Computed example of a mutant assay.
Amino acid sequence: MRNSSAVTGEPGGTPAREAGTGQAVATVERAVDVLMRFTETPAMTLGVTEIAQALGISKAAVHRILASLRVRGLIELDESTRRYSLGVGAMRLGLAYLDRLDVRRIAAPELVTLSERTGETATLSTRTGWNRVYVDQVTPAREVIMSVSLGVPYPLHAGGSSKAFLAFLSEGEIESYLARAPLESLTDKTVVDVPGLREELALIRTRGWARSFAERMAGAASVAAPVLDHHGRPVAVVSVCGPLERFREEVESCAEALLESAGRLSAQMGWTGSAPAVTGPVTGR
């Protein structure tokens, strides 16, 4: 005779159904954990024992999960070494994600946060050949502010956002750009000396951000950092800018907030490297 005692839980649910659902969810979670393990280690391949020990599950369970992932092309097995690696299916998932990334849409809320935190204008730039353009900005609620012109091209050596782009290109691209000398001066502070610019680009790569005091426009100052993709290439640049005299006192705090924003955006664009920290005093020309 069937037991008719009451069962607590969701309306209409049964213990068997709920138990089955819970087991299914746990299985999916373990499969995801196994798959993500391949993204969290520098090793190109992993063995069953390594995965089992890292995740705290049995080798038998790992075997079953890997077999299912192999069927769907997410994992591949090297028959000679009996070690596993990410498969073509995983690559297709990653490429599908990257194809849908819209840096301007992703950066929009971060610009708001950055402007509110610094009390200055936050901008986003993208690159077009040997130039870059502002594509978005958020201005602060204060009487004296900086505002940029969207869509106007600027050379990659003039100003903080431009230098943040140039510094993170490949060595070959940097040398190709510098070979286009003489470099154009936008103000009397624009760095047009090639050896001096090359030295500054190396510093920018080391600390992760660029600064400009009146190099693009007289009376303006900024700090800028790249948004990196999964290859470590700059897909955009975020900056904080303000009136020169006021901004001189704000550089270090703005740079700190900037790096945090750029790091979050880079992570969303697929970059897994570490973000640099603000170190030492910052001085301008």
Rank of each mutant, 00 (worst) to 15 (best):
S4T: 10
S5Q: 14
S5Y: 08
V7P: 07
G9V: 00
E10F: 07
P11W: 06
P11N: 07
P11Q: 08
G13Y: 01
A16C: 00
A19K: 08
A19Y: 06
G20I: 10
T21Q: 12
G22L: 09
Q23G: 00
V32P: 05
L35H: 06
M36E: 13
R37I: 11
T39V: 13
E40K: 14
A43D: 08
L46Y: 03
E50Q: 15
I51A: 00
I57V: 12
L66M: 07
A67M: 06
A67Y: 07
R70H: 01
L74W: 02
I75D: 00
I75L: 00
L77Q: 14
Y84L: 00
G87D: 01
G89M: 01
M91E: 15
A96G: 07
A96S: 14
L101H: 01
V103D: 05
P109W: 04
P109D: 07
E116Q: 15
R117F: 06
T121M: 01
T123G: 02
T126M: 12
T126K: 03
V133I: 10
D136N: 04
Q137V: 07
V138L: 00
A141C: 01
S147W: 01
L150H: 09
L150Q: 09
G151C: 01
V152M: 13
P153K: 04
P155Y: 13
H157K: 13
A158V: 12
G159C: 02
K163P: 03
K163N: 07
A164P: 05
A164Y: 06
F165K: 02
F165L: 01
L166V: 10
A167H: 04
A167W: 06
F168C: 04
S170E: 10
G172S: 07
E175S: 14
A179E: 10
A181G: 14
E184Q: 14
S185W: 05
K189L: 12
V194A: 06
P195W: 03
G196V: 03
E200F: 04
L201T: 08
A202R: 14
L203R: 12
I204M: 04
R207G: 06
G208M: 05
W209T: 11
S212C: 05
F213D: 15
A214G: 08
M217R: 15
M217S: 14
G219D: 10
A220L: 13
A220R: 04
S222P: 01
V223A: 14
V223K: 11
V223S: 11
A225P: 09
P226T: 08
G232H: 03
G232M: 04
G242M: 09
F247R: 06
R248I: 11
E252Y: 07
E256S: 10
A257F: 01
E260N: 02
E260M: 03
A262R: 09
G263V: 02
R264L: 11
M269R: 02
M269L: 13
W271G: 07
T272Q: 14
P276T: 04
V278G: 00
P281K: 15
V282F: 15
T283G: 11
T283M: 09
R285S: 15
